[in-house]
């Protein structure tokens, strides 16, 4: 069982960048952004295409982030300038990205087996496979949590947070909410694409279908983290999301060990998220009953 713990935690850390991205849209901007389902494989595809052409892993991840950010900007423009509802704007970008991802890779699946990835670099430095994934996961997660925490302490970051809470209020303070929404979507999808780039390299391939269900995985991580580890402050929320991503991976590993067929994984996750989203409703009912008594 313990042999499984390190790789599971490592996967949770690599996926936590996705969870942080989903947190930025779902909680901070108050938008359910489905672009994620396209920008996650986009990140993997761009990174894989770059690595296959002989690029170094660092460049691959930067390019993936830029591509993901652009995808977020497109959703943002559809939503703010063309007034398309955010959910639909995200779906449009997600669908468009399916074709884009096929073009980036040239085919539906790009293998990285004989290619140097960020993980092979660390393996060459003497770490075993598990440790190399854990090292990349922990370093990048800590860096991104610190960067996000710093950013949302700045004037621009505060304006983005205020946009999510009350767009009318922040417009009355002179901030263009179109800009803050677009910028928030950019950051979110850049993070998601980075997560995709890491996961692709750790899996050893990029696949056009690897984005299916990522929004639900992100939501599951955000909600599990919030319920278990709290939302007292912004810093607390960020850490909760990362831990939520790790806990989600552990839960999945446990149910698979207990014999759940892997094919049922997405059904399981969807039910989990549906229950978690309905939690406030149940709590209200219970509270009312208590009051009635």
């Amino acid at each position: 069982m313990f042999d499984l713990l390190l790789p599971t935690v490592s996967q949770g850390l690599l996926w936590s960048m996705l969870a942080l991205g989903v947190f930025l849209t779902f909680r901070v901007l108050d938008i359910a952004d489905l672009t994620v389902e396209g920008s996650f494989p986009l990140g993997a595809a761009v990174a894989a295409a770059c690595l296959v052409k002989g690029g170094n892993p660092f460049t691959a991840i930067v390019l993936a982030a830029i591509a993901g950010g652009l995808a977020g900007v497109i959703t943002g423009l559809l939503h703010t300038k063309l007034k398309i509802p955010a959910l639909l704007a995200g779906i449009l970008t997600m669908i468009a990205l399916y074709s884009v991802n096929l073009r980036v890779m040239g085919k539906a699946n790009l293998s990285l087996l004989r290619v140097d990835t960020v993980f092979t670099y660390l393996r060459n430095m003497g770490l075993d496979n598990n440790m190399s994934i854990f090292t990349v996961g922990i370093i990048s997660t800590v860096l991104f949590v610190l960067a996000i925490y710093w950013f949302f302490g700045t004037e621009i970051g505060a304006a983005i947070r205020a946009t999510g809470f009350n767009p009318q209020m922040i417009r009355a303070q002179g901030v263009d909410t179109n800009h803050t929404i677009i910028f928030g979507l950019l950051l979110s999808n850049a993070l998601v694409a980075i997560s995709g780039a890491f996961i692709g390299q750790s899996n050893g391939f990029a696949d056009v279908g690897m984005g299916v269900g990522t929004i639900v995985i992100g939501l599951a991580s955000v909600i599990i983290g919030e319920v278990l580890f709290g939302t007292r402050s912004f810093k607390n929320s960020l850490i909760s999301v990362v831990l939520g991503s790790v806990v989600y991976r552990i839960v999945i590993a446990v149910v698979l060990q207990m014999g759940m067929p892997p094919n049922d994984l997405k059904l399981f996750t969807a039910v989990l998220v549906a229950l978690a989203l309905a939690l406030p409703l149940f709590q209200n009912k219970i509270n009312k009953r208590k009051v009635a008594e």
């Binding site: 950013f151 302490g153 700045t154 004037e155 621009i156 970051g157 505060a158 304006a159 205020a162 922040i170 009355a172 303070q173 002179g174 901030v175």
Partner: peptide
Amino acid sequence: ENLALAARRGKTPTLAWA
């Protein structure tokens, strides 16, 4: 934080501390 946002009313937000 609300007061700080209002203190910057009409100014373009920057990367300075909020």
